[in-house]
Design a binder for these strands. Structure first.
Length: 637
DNA sequence: ACGACGCGCCAC
DNA sequence: AAACGTGGCGCGTCGT
């Protein structure tokens, strides 16, 4: 056993590195008898599903002792046995370690996950703000520096220096540094010691705040998203490769066009602005930094102006080039680069990312693929013999707003299945309202969800401010409880000095004192997220989990056998449906063809027409607290 | 050469 | 009186 000594928070700690089979008894004894065992892995990189991905070490530890198991030296079986004997395991960002162990065959995800506590989830519950938002952040080093030892990040800094001295980038260093390097081993060992100490601190605070049930819920949800990540989704590689070529050609053609006016970099706003001015265009808006603003809206106005003016070909070319570049690099090439050896992508799902607890998806960013054009989504396929199914909530944030504000007029409209925006438009503009007036009514409703005012809605819609102001006043008269809610939330801050809102599920979201108007959104968005999260668990409980491929805030994407698609769609929407304070939270589903693009207007393959089918379901169940049985008809408190 | 940051654009 | 929420990611720019 190789011993490395260090101090943490002023007291000695020890890192023991296995050197031979003779050390195995001590390690396994430690794993068996440590009631709360911190665990971590060091790997060759973050791309778990890449062909050359490997686990280099697995570490175990408690508050002042860590064991490093060098898997790369042939001790993988000892890591496996240590994990098997462990009781409660603690990880920081468990999905990464559990999926890495699962992927490399060292431990089954299903066996480990139920015993794992994740300090990242716990920390998010205590303060969901990222660094730079006034919070500590959720990285192990951020948290350890703030809560354990302010010198905790030094080892990481030291390791990065070692990488640099070796001529390696940080991303290369983890794969290439000698496994015997003492700084690397120390870093590996200290991480589990920090994780263990962090768990102790966070557990006490979670007990004090009585949010243990919510933290358990978050763990279950994270298990479900990890299984989704492991499942991955099938990529149409040939199509995607053709699309890359097509987008590159589009961009090059547009770039040549732009070059005629001297623009060599379409991504340089300064260059674009200069060329436009040289063409005689008059720019009006500036960015916050004082530069001429030439964003999509400005360029769009020049490229496609109203009557009496010519279209500016440079503006159109710049827009076209940038769009083709973005679609190619961020989406099409990202999908090809992230695929595994079975042509599947496994986007990283962060089940608890945003300040509002919303999920995020990256590598590639599947929550934000273009939706007005089917070409990017066409890259994603259902399994052979399957079709794509999408199930989504019906205007969930507005329903949550009505429920939490207890806005009676809005609640009864929803309960009676009346179109909310039609009704609002009729109340504001009379029964013969125009399409544009309905759009304004809808924009105001969304503005309320975001905490926006008349000016913001006017900017968003392009409608004259005085008209918007009158409409907003009418909205407030029609739905008075909504303004009352936002005022109540702000008054509460003034009265109690507590700068946060607490959601029905017990989530605490901190408010910025200069943005108190965000309080309404901070109540709605996390609640909508928790509704979707509970639905995810309900879908798994109903036996449909294996079909799930992705979650996009209020939508679930699935690959289902073509012959059972309707039945599964009904089952999934049934599981998603619930009631929030008397307001039905309903879901609809659509069945497409083989590719995701079929739901966005792509010509179907194998069929003459895309088979889409919208079905509204009835609500059942409730969502007052995340631990209530889901999918059941039980009444809420 | 690398990293941080502003800006812009994609989604819900 | 006024106040538009949450992310990921690529490019260009600027600092080290």
């Amino acid at each position: 056993m190789r011993i490395l000594n260090h101090t943490m928070a002023g007291a000695p700690v020890e890192v023991r590195v296995l050197e031979g089979r003779g050390d195995s008894a001590e390690l396994l004894n430690f794993c068996t008898h440590t009631p709360v065992l911190a665990m971590d892995t060091e790997t060759t990189g973050l791309d778990i599903y890449a062909a050359n991905f490997r686990i280099r070490t697995v570490q175990f530890g408690h508050a002042d002792l860590a064991y490093v198991v060098p898997v790369e030296y042939g001790f993988g079986d000892l890591a496996t046995e240590g994990l098997r004997r462990s009781r409660t395991l603690v990880c920081h960002n468990a999905p990464f370690d559990l999926l890495s162990l699962d992927r490399t065959g060292l431990a089954d995800f299903e066996k480990l996950a139920p015993r794992v506590r994740d300090t990242r989830l716990m920390a998010h519950q205590l303060d969901s703000r990222a660094q730079g938002e006034g919070g500590i952040g959720h990285g192990l080093k951020d948290l350890a520096e703030a809560l354990i030892d302010d010198q905790a990040p030094d080892t990481q800094t030291g390791l990065h220096q070692v990488f640099r001295q070796l001529g390696l980038r940080v991303s290369e260093g983890f794969a290439q540094i000698d496994l015997a390097h003492p700084v690397y081993l120390l870093y590996a060992g200290l991480d589990v010691i920090l994780t263990h100490r962090l768990h102790t601190v966070l557990t006490a605070e979670i007990q004090r705040r009585q949010v243990a049930q919510l933290v358990d819920f978050d763990h279950q949800v994270q298990q479900a998203t990890s299984r989704m990540q492991r499942r991955g989704m099938l990529l149409d590689v040939e199509y995607t490769e053709r699309l890359v070529v097509e987008l590159r050609d589009d961009a090059e053609a547009a770039r040549r066009e732009a070059a005629q006016w001297g623009v060599t970099k379409v991504g340089s706003p300064a260059q674009v602005a200069e060329a436009l001015i040289a063409m005689g265009e008059e720019l009006a808006e500036r960015t916050a930094g004082g530069a001429w603003k030439v964003d999509k809206q400005v360029l769009g106005g020049l490229a496609d102006p109203g009557r009496g003016r010519g279209a500016n070909p440079l503006a159109a070319a710049v827009l076209a080039a940038k769009r083709a570049d973005k679609w190619r690099t961020s989406y099409a090439e990202a999908m090809l680069a992230n695929r595994d050896s079975h042509d599947r992508i496994h986007p990283t799902i962060n089940a608890l990312q945003a300040r509002t607890a919303r999920m995020s998806v990256s590598n590639p960013p599947l929550q934000q693929l273009p939706s007005r054009d089917w070409r990017i989504r066409q890259c994603i396929l259902a399994e052979p013999g399957h079709v794509i199914l999408s199930a989504d909530f019906a205007s969930v944030e507005l329903r949550v707003l009505a429920a939490l504000a207890d806005e009676q007029a809005m609640k009864s409209l929803i309960q009676n299945g009346v179109d909310l925006h039609d009704s609002t438009a009729a109340a504001l503009f009379g029964p013969n309202f125009t399409k544009a007036q309905r759009q304004l009514a809808k924009a105001i409703a969304f503005g309320k969800v975001y905490g926006g005012g008349a000016a913001g809605i006017a900017r968003q819609t392009g409608v004259e401010l005085s008209i918007v102001e009158r409409a907003v006043a009418g909205f407030d008269r029609t739905y008075p409880a909504i303004s009352r809610l936002s005022h109540r939330l702000r008054d509460r801050v003034r009265l109690t000095g507590e700068r946060w809102v607490t959601t029905p599920t017990g989530r605490r979201i901190h408010l910025d004192s200069d943005r108190l108007y965000a309080a309404t959104n901070y109540l709605i968005q996390p609640t909508a997220r928790d509704i979707a999260a509970q639905a995810l668990l309900a879908i798994e409980d109903a036996g449909y989990g294996e079909f799930l491929r992705m979650v996009i805030h209020d939508e679930f994407l699935a690959s289902v056998p073509a012959v059972d698609a309707e039945e599964i769609g009904h089952g999934i929407t049934q599981a998603m449906s619930m009631t929030l304070r008397g307001v039905p939270i309903d879901a609809d589903f659509e069945v497409g063809g083989r590719s995701w693009g079929s739901l966005y207007g792509a010509p179907a393959t194998g069929h003459f027409f895309a088979q889409t089918h919208k079905v509204a379901t009835h609500s059942s169940g409730s969502v007052e607290a995340p631990t209530e049985p889901h999918g059941e008809g039980g009444a809420a408190s």
